[in-house]
Amino acid sequence: MSQPRAPIPAHDTPVPAAAADLGGRHVPGPWVGSDAPSIWTLIARVPAFPRKVLNHRDLVLSSIIRELRARFQGTLLGWMWPLVYPIFMFAVYYFIFAELLQMKMPGITDDQKPAMGIFMFVGVLIWTGFAEGMLRAGNVIVENGNLIKKLAFPTELLPFNVTVVGLTTMLFGVGIYLAVLWGSVGLHAVGLIETPLWPDAPGLGLLWMPVLLLVQLMFTVGIGLLLATMQVFLRDTMQLASILTLTWMFVTPVFWVASPQVIGGIEPYMDTLALNPALHLLNCWRWVLMVGQPAVVFDGQPAFLESLGTISIWAVCLFVVGYLFFLRSQRRFADEV
């Protein structure tokens, strides 16, 4: 190298004055040792998760925006895309199930004609929001291996971020859904259409949404952290997980109504079905989003608060277990990805 360089002070010169000035500000860092933290230390770190998110809110926010932007960057419709998808889905479900197949549930009145389409739309919307977030979260650590090997940052934020992204796309769908429902009620009120799509658009019940979102977030992140950790050490995990998720979807009433009135002979299995936390999650969302829906949908189903309680317990337990599992192995990620 030929460029001139300024001479440096010899190594035995005292610390420059500027450094000495910093004296008071310096706080000794913690010792980082080789011992794996004890289970109690790990448990003590679990409640710190929200604070971690808060402290790194800029990282979380940037990542989420980046993730959302990356999906639509360079497309013609850009930010319209998250809206196009649910609109299209809504139209398809309505057309196929209500108009084409004339599918009706027993005990449904005429002004609830699209009930089946709406039932499935809500089911698919919520399920996708959950499953997409979970599967992405499971892969996210291995996918970002290069980042983990080169940058020191709280890796638990990665599964968290993609879960939030899943929830956000889901919320776009919920927004469209509400707009369509409210729109049809409005059009009916001014006499432009004969029957509204839905007799009674959701109102105050929506105040439950933040609670539901939080519970779903914990639930999804919990499973996501668990999967992500396993995926680091055994790459078969996510292969297996995608098969199991498909199975899970079919045993969850996404496309079918778990009501004895609709499916005769389901009665003896109701208790078993109630063991599935996803059933409770969908149930809650349908209580909130399908106000004034046919009573038949909820026939034999746990009441809203009961479902909410059950899924909350599931969410907290899964989150604690998943995060503990993640924390226990976190220090080895950089060596394995």
């Binding site: 310096h26 706080v27 980082v32 940058l151 020191a152």
Partner: peptide, 17 residues
């Protein structure tokens, strides 16, 4: 830099890295 944990011994950094 804290990207990977030591297998033995310990370290300490005093200040923002």
């Amino acid at each position: 830099s804290g990207i990977t944990a030591p297998t033995e011994g310990r370290l300490r950094l005093n200040g923002r890295v």
